[in-house]
Design a protein around this nucleic acid. Structure first.
Length: 329
DNA sequence: AGCAAGGTTCGTCAAGCGCT
DNA sequence: AGCGCTTGACGAACCTTGCT
């Protein structure tokens, strides 16, 4: 078809050149574009209110001011997935492909969400490490990280998560309010839910203290209690917890620790330490695998982005080839 | 349904690294 | 040096799939 074309072709050339020059890996394409079209691009300044005006000098010496169609120099797709998505959708629309529009919209949304993901940003930064001129994403601390940071040190160090599992598979969660919830492992978890009410007399952690203590439930099972809490058994038989001033126990209260835990038994101590270590490592392994999965999914998304970008560039190259051949005739 | 092969998930161990 | 965290490797248990 005949180009209504000077403007459009110039815009395409400029867009292609811009796209290519933005990504170092596209230098070959850029060289090809330059050799094919033999155009020189002069990007005008962007007024605060108006669009960029780009002067495109065509091989015959004619200078074409290009408005509107050519967007002002914008951040690279590689920097920002959202921008890439816009570019893709523009071209997809011109291709009259509803399917690709839909998929692009989906991926746009997906990338928009992902762009806020620290793992994704880290990947992007890694990928951009060979493009020093381009700005980096600031890797945000994830929610878990920030929440972990806000957690008092004593809690994190001694008990990473207040959920414990007994030797019989029961799960024990110690809530913020100090209640102990018991849940049976397996399908009947709800049925087996029990609650031991605990009164947390002082929320403040005692820094530096590492106390391993076990409370015994009604069915004789031992449970691990955070080191900043002392579990005592009141006269009524109810279990209570209070802040544990390091090494001191209020007189007159009966410790509910298991009789099977003689404090001077080194073997027991070693066993308990090992259990804590295993529990921590178990949690760490879970967390590591979770992060790994997230990272892999981000990489997969990155593959999608680059594949789309590749399609765009090839398309633009073909257009330019056609334009060049047309000019030569 | 039963079985085997392959895949996935999870817990554990151990090495390495950074921090104090 | 000791400690805690991260991460690769390994094995066990469980799940999925294809075949008979």
């Amino acid at each position: 078809m005949a180009w209504p074309m000077k403007m459009e072709s110039a815009a395409v050339i400029q867009q292609a050149a811009y796209t290519a020059v933005t990504y170092p890996e596209n230098q070959i394409i850029l060289a090809l574009i330059a050799s094919l079209a033999k155009v020189s691009l002069t990007t005008g300044h962007t007024s605060p209110t108006g669009p960029t005006v780009t002067l495109v000098q065509l091989p015959n010496g004619q200078t074409v001011p290009v408005h509107g169609v050519i967007q002002a120099a914008q951040p690279s797709v590689i920097q920002s997935p959202q921008v890439q998505a816009v570019q893709i959708s523009t071209i997809a629309e011109s291709e009259d492909s509803q399917e690709s529009v839909d998929s692009v919209t989906d991926s746009q949304k997906r990338r928009e969400i992902l762009s806020h993901d620290p793992s994704y940003r880290k990947i992007l930064n890694d990928l951009m490490s060979y493009v020093p001129a381009l700005p980096r994403f600031e890797v945000e601390k994830s929610e878990e990280d920030s929440s972990a940071a806000a957690t008092p040190a004593i809690t994190t160090v001694t008990v990473p998560t207040p959920i414990y599992q007994t030797s019989s598979g029961q799960y024990i969660a110690i809530t913020q309010g100090g209640a102990i919830q018991l849940a049976n492992n397996g399908t009947d978890g709800v049925q087996g839910l029990q609650t031991l009410t605990m009164t947390n007399a002082a929320a403040a952690a005692q820094p530096g203290a590492t106390i391993l203590q076990y409370a015994q439930t009604s069915d004789g099972q031992q449970i691990l209690v955070p080191s900043n809490q002392v579990v005592v058994q009141a006269a009524s038989g109810a279990y209570q917890s209070c802040a544990a001033p390091a090494g001191t126990i209020a007189p007159g209260v009966v410790m509910a620790s298991s009789p099977a835990l003689p404090t001077k038994d080194v073997k027991e101590e070693v066993t308990k330490k090992r259990e804590v270590r295993l529990m921590k490592n178990r949690e760490a392994a879970r967390e590591y695998r979770r992060k790994k999965k997230k990272y892999i999914s981000c990489l997969e998304n990155r593959v999608d982005v680059l594949q789309n970008q590749n399609v765009i560039l090839i398309r633009e190259l073909n257009i330019l080839r056609g334009f060049y051949c047309h000019k030569m005739e």
